[in-house]
C-alpha cells in the first residue's frame, strides 16, 4: 500500500498508473452528464412556482459545487506541494485552476440567466451569486499570480500560499455575505433553497453533480499527464514512452 502511494507521488509512476483511470472516468462523466441532462431537461416535472425555468438548476448547482470544490482541491494540492515538495501536486493545482474559473463563470452566467424569470433582473445581489463572484475574483488572482512570476517554482509556491489563504477566507466570506444579505434583502426567495424536492427532481441533479465531478477529475488527470510530459521532457522514460507511441 505504502509503496503504491509512493509510486503515485513520482511523475513517472503516476503517469503509468493514471493511464488506466482515464477511459473509465471519461465514460462515467459522459454517461452521467448525458443521462442527468436529458432527464433534467425532458423528464423531470416542472416546478410548480418557477415552471420550466427551474431546469437551469441542473447545470447551475453542479457548476457552483464544482467551482467551490476545485478551489478547495487546489488549496489542498498547494498544501501538499508546500509541505512535502511533491511537484505532481503543483502540476495538478496549476491544471485545475482555469477549469475552476470556468465553472465559476458558468455558475454566475446560469445564475444571472435564471434570475431574469425568477427575479425579473439579470443581476441580484443574492448571497450565493455574490460569493460566487468573489470566488471568481479569487480564481483570477491565483491564476494571475502564478503567471506573474518569472520562475516556475516561485510562481508555484506563491500560488499555493494564495490558494491556502483564500481557502481559509472562503467560509468567512460566505458567512459574512450571507449575513449581509439577510440584513439587506429579507423578502426575495433564494433560487436554490427548495424545501423538499421529489426524487424525480433531485435524482437527475445528483447524477449531474457526480458527472461534473468525474469530468473534473478526468480533465485534471489528462492535463496533469500532459504537463508531466512537458516538464519532464528531457528524462529518459519520457523519451522511451514517446518512441513507443509512434
Amino acid at each position: 500500500m505504502w509503496a503504491f502511494i509512493h509510486k503515485l507521488g513520482s511523475p513517472k509512476g503516476f503517469y503509468a498508473i493514471s493511464a488506466r483511470w482515464l477511459t473509465p472516468l471519461w465514460l462515467a462523466a459522459a454517461a452521467l452528464i448525458l443521462i442527468g441532462g436529458t432527464w433534467g431537461l425532458a423528464f423531470s416535472p416542472a416546478d410548480y412556482q418557477q415552471g420550466d425555468s427551474f431546469r437551469i438548476i441542473y447545470v447551475h448547482v453542479p457548476a457552483a459545487f464544482l467551482a467551490q470544490s476545485i478551489f478547495v482541491a487546489m488549496a489542498a494540492a498547494g498544501f501538499v506541494f508546500m509541505v512535502w515538495k511533491i511537484k505532481l501536486a503543483d502540476m495538478a493545482a496549476a491544471m485545475m485552476a482555469p477549469l475552476g474559473a470556468g465553472m465559476t463563470f458558468v455558475a454566475l452566467f446560469s445564475g444571472a440567466v435564471w434570475g431574469v424569470p425568477t427575479w425579473g433582473t439579470w443581476w441580484q445581489w443574492d448571497a450565493r451569486l455574490t460569493s460566487m463572484l468573489i470566488l471568481f475574483f479569487l480564481y483570477i488572482g491565483v491564476i494571475a499570480l502564478r503567471g506573474a512570476f518569472a520562475s516556475r517554482d516561485g510562481g508555484a509556491r506563491a500560488a499555493s500560499v494564495l490558494a491556502m489563504v483564500g481557502v481559509i477566507n472562503i467560509p468567512i466570506i460566505k458567512y459574512s455575505v450571507e449575513w449581509w444579505y439577510t440584513l439587506h434583502q429579507p423578502a426575495t426567495f433564494s433560487i436554490t433553497s427548495k424545501p423538499a424536492m421529489p426524487a424525480a427532481m433531485w435524482l437527475p441533479l445528483l447524477l449531474m453533480v457526480l458527472g461534473f465531478y468525474c469530468f473534473f477529475i478526468a480533465v485534471t488527470l489528462m492535463r496533469t499527464r500532459s504537463e508531466i510530459l512537458r516538464r519532464e521532457s528531457s528524462k529518459r522514460w519520457v523519451r522511451a514512452l514517446v518512441e513507443e507511441q509512434r
Binding site: I134, L138, G141, L162, N169, I173, Y175
Partner: peptide, 10 residues
C-alpha cells in the same frame, strides 16, 4: 489589489 480586495470583503 486583485489579490487582496476579495479577502477584504468580510
Amino acid at each position: 489589489s486583485l489579490l487582496v480586495l476579495p479577502l477584504y470583503i468580510p
